[in-house]
Structure formats: structure tokens, C-alpha cells
């Protein structure tokens, strides 16, 4: 049942528990319990809203920063990551395979703000060897959802 609950919630976190129970053919209580369990186990880590900021008047800049680090003795990647992800400006941090170690997503009001954060906060960390900053120009799809346009049902109204 967990996978099915997650499958639905991932797409629609606001779904009514009653509807969710009906869709899955389970009782409301057991669905609610399962969700509570998963929250406790940190399988469900939050219920966020997918916002296309481009359609608002608010200025926002997102950047992907490739970070190379040298893991130091007694301080593996996790510790370094922690020093990075504690910053509020940091939206996401992933440990990567390949040419660099961390992919860090940063959000700021302006490019300057982001650049300043990278040069003064990120690059100055002891373990950080180098950074490369890439600004996001346009988001087409995020969290499995196309941001570009609303989809219309173009089917004929009645068909055999």
C-alpha cells in the first residue's frame, strides 16, 4: 500500500485522505495511519508546492553549482555536505558521481546575490577545491510536471 500512497501523494500532496482511501480501496484509518508512519520514518519529508516563479512578479534566480571538494580525515562527504546545506540559500545538495562531487542548487533574488554567496561562503570552505556556477535560464519541467502550458482535454465529448 505504501508505494501506491506515495505514487499518488507525489503527484498530489493535497488529495483528501478520504479520496485517497477510495482510490486505493483501503479504509481511511489505515491510509491515515500509514501516512503518519511514513512521516515518522522520514519517508515522507514534506508536502511542498510546485511553483513556477517565472509566472509571478517576484524575481528569483536559481543556479546549479558544481562543487569539487577534498574529503578530509575524519570528515567524509557527509560532513562537508552538512556545512553546505545548512545555509538557507541552498535548496538542494546531491552527492554526485563523475567530474565533480556536489551538485548544489541555490536560490537568490539576483545573480549578484548568488555569485556573492558562492564566492564568500561556498568557495571559502576549507574542503572546497573549486566551484562552477551555472544559472538556470528557464525551467521546462520540474518534479515530473511540465511547467510550460496547461494541458487541455482535446478528445471529442462522446465516442463509442
Amino acid at each position: 500500500m505504501r508505494e501506491k500512497i506515495l505514487g499518488i501523494l507525489e503527484k498530489n500532496a493535497r488529495i483528501d485522505i478520504r479520496d485517497l482511501a477510495v482510490l486505493l480501496g483501503e479504509s481511511e484509518v489505515s491510509v491515515a495511519n500509514e501516512i503518519a508512519e511514513m512521516e515518522k520514518e522520514h519517508i515522507i519529508c514534506g508536502y511542498h508546492t510546485l511553483i513556477n516563479w517565472d509566472n509571478t512578479s517576484q524575481e528569483k534566480v536559481t543556479a546549479l553549482i558544481e562543487v569539487k571538494v577534498t574529503p578530509q580525515r575524519g570528515m567524509g562527504f557527509d560532513k562537508i555536505a552538512e556545512r553546505i546545506y545548512q545555509y538557507n540559500e541552498v535548496n538542494a545538495v546531491y552527492l554526485m558521481s563523475g567530474a565533480y562531487d556536489f551538485a548544489v542548487f541555490i536560490e537568490g533574488k539576483t545573480m549578484k546575490e548568488v555569485a556573492l554567496f558562492v564566492s564568500s561562503k561556498l568557495s571559502t570552505l576549507d574542503s572546497v577545491l573549486s566551484t562552477a556556477t551555472h544559472f538556470v535560464l528557464k525551467k521546462y519541467k520540474d518534479h515530473g510536471t511540465e511547467l510550460v502550458e496547461e494541458i487541455h482535454d482535446e478528445r471529442m465529448l462522446v465516442t463509442p
Binding site: 478528445r155 471529442m156 465529448l157 462522446v158 465516442t159 463509442p160
Partner: peptide
């Protein structure tokens, strides 16, 4: 179908 087509903003559960 002809009747439905005349209706504006009908919700269709008639789609096959």
C-alpha cells in the same frame, strides 16, 4: 454526441 456538442462546459463521461 450532437446533443452534447451544443452544450457549453458540459463535463463528459461519454468518452470512449
Amino acid at each position: 454526441f450532437d446533443i452534447v456538442s451544443e452544450m457549453k462546459d458540459a463535463i463528459s463521461l461519454g468518452v470512449g
